[in-house]
Write a protein that binds this DNA or RNA. Structure first.
Length: 562
RNA sequence: UGGGGCGUCGUCAAGCGGUAAGACACAGGCCUUUGACGCCUGCAUUCGUAGGUUCGAAUCCUACCGCCCCAGCCA
């Protein structure tokens, strides 16, 4: 499907439009997506990616991919690789503009020295606990550190020694000298450098002091001459510090920080920390478990890049804390797959049908459209024979009036096949389960049309038993049972995991054309939903499909209503 | 009791002083060899509340009310 040509506007685009009007930044627009490589990207990051790269694209600007790798104790190369893969897969291109905060460590160090020389920063030798105690509270001002008035010379010397590795972790920190009485806690002489004897995944053992976010981020933005630095709401309180650093250092560029509301989705959690817990506690199979709202999970589940981009466009960008309905995400993937997925027949829960008046050893090849709305996608031949499988749910012993499917004496159409009428059925005496049904077919209705013009209300899918390919199908449901797993203050979010979020069906019967399906290929199993070939576990000998999303089912809804 | 934000349909969200877009959801109807898709219709006399300014306010002013974020040597 086509993505909308004109992206809906939002307050950030309005700001940029205004900036352009007054020729701010000489008309340049440069954004950046700055992930910390400490986890996999999720749908919330996708929103930010679409926002930043989308703006760059629409304003003929650029969007930098910059890894905010200032904390070696949490970051790993594995995450860098996955992030790059995910951004690319989503359809965005950073071109030459890939950067690392760690690439600026030298410059950042020099900026810190400059701050010290301006008497705007000092080495503080208080412990972490002491600093916390002296920071004050939300309503009381903090106290100034006893080390606040060290001489510039002493600060310079101490900072050099910090860098040289003469002190252990935590012995000293470098703090900006701002205002311990500020109502904004971030301005109460924030720590901007800490000692951390740890190898960095990119700079190795070169450094044993690392800059804090508030110092590294704004300066990285300035170094790259970013024009609009878009981040989430919780950084609103940091903006004064962002501006303070750049103003005091009088950097050539001073990007504008703009905050927007992060994405929250119903029935899931959206923080890397919590997603990591699910992985580590083995509650899911990994970061790319198809139930995870990670980019890699969605990809494995069968979501397309276009569907995610459309979703991000539909939800908009604002400053309100909101919670988006899962239905919007599902609608986005249905919308895309409806256009592009070939149609195919597969029976998830098979029920044997014997067509008593069909010759025992006969087989026919019936033509089926790959996409009824798009004839260009062609057709295929589907084998038909005396014994078939239909969906267990397509037969009822005592069907209600509005049930359009099979029941004793009822006639239905087999899609692209024949009209069949149920004559009798076999039932397991003990369990009461229907084990097989006997039908007769009308040879005149081949292909699905009755020459006498008679109509049937129902059309059901089927598969020839003799020709069927057996496959495993994994059905997914929302990972959590409650709308907001994080809302309960008493209970841990993991207690709300939906025990039925994964259901594995091992006896599915598919039409033989599916043998040729390749990992990642998506199909619509008619009347069921969209499914894709599992990328990790499926083999040509043992096909495995993931259900991406069901089709809308107004019959099920009607039933629920009662 | 400090500082920073936010309050427009069930859920998102436009709107920027001229008389409430759109999307999803929902309800009806049409179409149908997918109870899918598609199509049509309906869906906020009202914008957290109360005042005020104005010919005119969701948009400006004032005061309340409610919700979110901040006390990492995390980002």
């Amino acid at each position: 499907m086509n993505e909308q040509e004109n992206t809906p506007t939002n307050f950030i685009r309005n700001i940029i439009d205004e900036d352009l009007k007054i020729n701010k930044n000489n008309g340049r627009v440069v954004t950046r997506f700055p992930p910390e490589p400490n986890g996999y990207l999720h749908i919330g990051h996708a929103k930010s990616i679409c926002l930043n790269f989308g703006i760059a694209k629409d304003y003929n600007g650029a969007c930098h991919l910059r890894f905010d790798d200032t904390n070696p104790s949490k970051e790993e190369t594995e995450y860098i690789d996955s992030i790059k893969e995910d951004v690319k897969w989503l359809g965005f291109d950073w071109g030459e503009n890939i950067f690392y905060a760690s690439g600026y460590f030298g410059q950042l160090y020099d900026f810190a020295v400059q701050l010290i020389k301006m008497d705007k920063a000092f080495v503080c030798s208080l412990s972490a606990d002491e600093i916390r105690q002296q920071r004050g509270t939300l309503t009381e001002p903090g106290q100034e550190s006893p080390y606040r008035n060290r001489s510039v010379e002493e600060n310079l010397e101490l900072f050099a020694k910090m860098r040289a590795g003469e002190f252990g972790n935590g012995a000293h920190v470098l703090r900006a000298k701002i205002d311990m009485t500020s109502g904004n806690l971030n301005m109460r002489d924030p720590v901007i450098y800490r000692i951390m004897h740890a190898d960095h995944h990119r700079t190795g053992g070169q450094w044993c002091i690392y800059p804090m976010y508030d110092f590294a981020h704004c300066l990285s933005d300035a170094i790259e001459a970013i024009t609009h630095s878009i981040c989430t709401l919780e950084f609103e309180d940091h903006r004064p510090l962002y501006d303070w650093v750049l103003d005091t250092l009088q950097t050539e560029h001073h990007p504008q920080q703009i905050e927007f509301a992060r994405l929250n989705l119903d029935f899931t959690v959206m923080s890397k920390r919590k997603l990591m817990q699910l992985v580590n506690d083995k509650l899911v199979s990994g970061w790319d478990d198809p139930r995870m709202l990670t980019v890699s999970g969605l990809r494995r589940r069968g979501y397309t890049p276009a569907s995610i981009r459309n979703f991000c466009e539909q939800i908009g960008v604002g400053k309100r804390n909101s919670r988006i309905d899962m239905g919007i995400l599902e609608n986005a993937i249905r919308d895309d797959l409806n256009e592009i997925a070939p149609r195919v027949m597969g029976v998830l829960d098979p029920l044997k049908v014997i067509i008593d008046n069909y010759p025992e050893d006969q087989t026919e090849e019936l033509e089926a459209q790959n996409h009824p709305q798009n004839p260009e996608m062609g057709s295929r031949l589907v084998p038909f024979s005396r014994e078939l499988y239909i969906e267990q749910t397509d037969f009822m012993e005592e069907p209600p009036n509005k049930f359009f499917r099979l029941g004793p004496g009822r006639e239905v159409r087999l899609r692209y096949g024949y009209f069949i009428t149920c004559q009798s059925f076999e039932k397991d005496a003990k369990s009461g389960a229907i084990t097989a049904i006997h039908c007769t077919y009308d040879p005149a209705t081949k292909g699905g049309n009755a020459p006498d013009g008679r109509k049937v209300k129902g059309t059901i899918h089927w598969v020839s038993a003799r020709h069927a390919v057996k496959a495993q199908i994994r059905l997914y449901d929302r990972l959590f049972e409650v709308e907001n797993p994080e809302a309960d203050k008493e209970k841990d979010f993991k207690e709300f995991i939906n025990p039925h979020s994964l259901e594995v069906l091992d006896n599915c019967q598919l039409e033989p054309a599916l043998t040729a399906a390749q990992p990642g290929d998506s199909f619509q199993f008619e009347r069921q939903g969209y499914f894709c070939v599992e990328t990790k576990d499926s083999t040509p000998e043992a096909l495995i499909f993931n259900r991406t999303v069901t089709l809308r089912d107004s019959w099920a809804r009607e039933n629920k209503k009662g």
